[in-house]
């Protein structure tokens, strides 16, 4: 009996420390969500401005840039998957990976080969554990991505996209590098504190909407340098901006998912604590009752033995 009480006491202690960890993680996540959202809104002016410039350019210049032209034959598609570095984030990573897997099987059904690019240790370990090749991976910044991270990713994706232009079914073209013909991005978008949804989008080639002007003549822009040249300089930057936005959105989602997971973990711990404490109390009470009845029984036996003499 005393042993049982001891065991329960140990359980209570361990649940209590687990709860402390979950609670601390929850508080950290709560403050990180706010920070992540701040960064998202801080990045918005640039994204809006660059989209505006791009739209103006596209409506004023001929847009036959390789990044804007769908390729007639898509042999290989690149998939950029964004996950977190650390776990304890509920179904966040599982959802992102599941979405990516869905996309990959769709691409394979269309006879497209798939090249995987992953962000975050979770997706990396998922694929290396299953022995599936990963073209490139970036880890160590999922919670707080910077633009420099996005640029690194963008540069290698664009290099792969450019290298893919001359690939044919049998050879990898004069450059000898196996590239990709289109790029998809799988990331999680932050809808609210309770909902984050993973989804996939096209990253390249992209479509630019030409602005339809209502009435009045178009303002005639001057360009320095020539529009085509500027488009070539601007598009890679725009891709980087898109990647950066996806990273920020995913980071906010990651923290929101983690906060929710940690909240339910600490709620569960509370419940367990209550159950275990009840069990422990009743075990202790049972032990005391038993001891008393043993003493009483013993005393009665002694008294009975004494009166017999």
């Amino acid at each position: 009996m005393a042993g049982q009480v001891q065991a329960l006491r140990r359980k209570v202690r361990s649940v209590r420390s687990t709860k402390k960890i979950a609670k601390a993680q929850e508080l950290v996540a709560t403050s990180k969500i706010a920070k992540a959202q701040e960064r998202q809104s801080a990045a918005k002016p640039y994204a809006e401005a660059i989209t505006g410039v791009l739209t103006e350019l596209a409506s004023n210049a001929s847009i036959d840039h390789p990044l804007l032209q769908p390729r007639p034959r898509v042999l290989r598609a690149g998939v950029l998957l964004i996950t977190s570095d650390r776990g304890l984030a509920g179904a966040y990573n599982a959802n992102a990976i599941r979405t990516a897997e869905g996309l990959i099987s769709r691409l394979r059904a269309d006879n497209k080969d798939v090249a995987l690019y992953v962000v975050g240790r979770k997706a990396l370990s998922y694929y290396t554990f299953r022995g599936r090749p990963v073209e490139a991976s970036w880890t160590g910044f999922s919670g707080e991505p910077t633009f420099a991270d996005a640029r690194k990713i963008g540069e290698s994706l664009l290099a792969a996209f450019e290298a893919g232009a001359d690939d044919t079914e049998t050879t990898y073209g004069p450059d000898g590098i196996r590239g990709v013909d289109e790029i998809h991005i799988v990331s999680t978008s932050f809808k609210s504190l309770m909902t984050q949804s993973a989804g996939s989008r096209f990253l390249a080639p992209m479509q630019v909407e030409e602005k339809k002007r209502e009435g009045g003549p178009k303002p005639s822009y001057e360009f320095e340098p020539e529009p085509e040249e500027m488009l070539a300089a601007l598009l890679p930057k725009y891709i980087n901006t898109r990647i950066y936005a996806a990273l920020l959105d995913s980071a906010a989602s990651e923290w929101a998912a983690r906060r929710r997971a940690m909240k339910s973990a600490s709620d569960n711990a509370d419940e367990l604590l209550k159950t275990y404490t009840r069990e422990m109390n009743s075990a202790r009470q049972a032990a005391i009752t038993q001891e008393i009845s043993e003493i009483v029984g013993g005393a009665n036996a002694l008294a009975a033995a004494g009166s017999d003499e």
Partner: peptide
């Protein structure tokens, strides 16, 4: 810009530059 230095005063014509 890549083409040269440029000063912008109010009322400047629309321009995009690198």
């Amino acid at each position: 810009t890549t083409e040269g230095e440029l000063g912008v005063l109010p009322g400047h014509a629309p321009l995009l530059g690198q």
